[in-house]
Design a protein around this nucleic acid. Structure first.
Lengths: 213, 213
DNA sequence: GTCTATACATGGATAGAC
DNA sequence: GTCTATCCATGTATAGAC
């Protein structure tokens, strides 16, 4: 049956991508783990690139409506407090992905991080194309929180913030290993997020602008 | 002659890696652009992974001594000011790479960003293995600037900062394109750095710590 | 020592049989 | 709709020419 095959491919790909990254996972690995023919990936998804999007879509379709909800219920605040509120409002739906699947949050953020850095903008286009309204909602909330910061400066800070997040998620396994070896800390994904939120909030809310070098 | 061949390979690889990324550049592209035999890369560098390190080494060997110099001459300051000073002290040697080669800074940071995200920790090990003392010097200067922040918290912030930097550099071409389309700004690499420094400095210097979610 | 030619295993993709 | 057989490109390794 087609649906079983498709689902089995996504399941297998999800596990393998999260574990070893997108580029290091071969189609042959995916299809043998899923017990389907090598060509089925191409048949059902068109290409390997589309496959990673399908894997992520399953999570995005749970995540984004929750983010929309959060944005609606949010009472806007100004300044650092508002940014903090917004980021924590984002963190909660993210952590709720653990309900979708055991370890769902970690799998999702690793997929996101690795996919974002390895797929050369394809993923960015996919997200903007399919969840653009949610992103726009986040942005306008940010503008309300920081009315004094010009749009182009906000653009920069947002990308730096995304960079911190994506990079941390892509290398979260390495971060966990280092933290364990050097600081005897057992790190879970919510710990990474908990450290990340104040860092990013602080950077975004800064009152000074860029200066010439 | 060997030296010519080696240098020609590095030149060709440098241009191609910076332009289209590490993973998207094939050995055959490199060797035909360099007008050398396909097998020479393996002969001279052992593997493609080693090649990207050789490309970066040419820049690191110019950059890192300048960073060492900067660290020696730096008069330590505390708090946000000290962090700012440190980051700007890093930015200048980085921009001096333009003297090494036309557009050197941009090529280097793009190589660094793309290599870092695509090479799964190999690059991190390479940097720590070859320039570990310089990194350690930077870290201790950071500890002096922020004595109240515990080592593990500093560890997190440093990685978030690296994430902002690496991600921005890896996607600097996309950022430049977006900035031009949406904000009619012609962005050069020093503009990215100029915006990045206060963002990162602010995040690193934050006085609040992670809270539980 | 360098370099060339070439072989090999594996990657993703596809045309066509069923 | 599904799968087999096959295609072409890739990174790597090696044998042998200069």
């Amino acid at each position: 049956m087609s649906k079983q095959t498709k689902a089995r491919i996504i399941d297998a790909a999800e596990a393998l991508f999260a574990e070893q990254g997108y580029g290091q996972t071969s189609m042959r690995e995916i299809t043998s783990k899923a017990n389907v023919n090598l060509a089925s990936v191409n048949y059902h998804f068109g290409s390997k690139k589309n496959l990673i999007q399908a894997v992520l879509k399953r999570y995005f379709d749970v995540l984004m409506p929750q983010v929309d909800d959060m944005l609606e219920k949010l009472i806007p605040s100004q300044g650092r407090k508002g940014v903090d509120q917004l980021l924590q409002g984002l963190a909660l739906p993210l952590l709720h992905l653990n309900a979708v699947q055991p370890n769902g949050t970690e799998i999702f953020v690793q997929l996101l991080g690795k996919g974002y850095t390895e797929s050369q903008g394809h993923l960015r286009k996919f997200i903007l194309g399919n969840y653009g309204e949610t992103i726009e909602g986040l942005l306008s909330m940010l503008r309300i929180a920081l009315p004094a910061i010009p749009a182009d400066e906000l653009f920069w800070r947002l990308h730096f913030a995304i960079g911190s997040f994506v990079f941390s998620m892509a290398s979260s396994q390495a971060l966990k290993d280092i933290a364990k070896a050097d600081y005897q800390q057992d790190i879970e994904i919510q710990d990474v997020i908990a450290h990340l939120v104040p860092f990013v909030a602080q950077g975004i809310s800064a009152e000074g602008y860029a200066r010439e070098l």
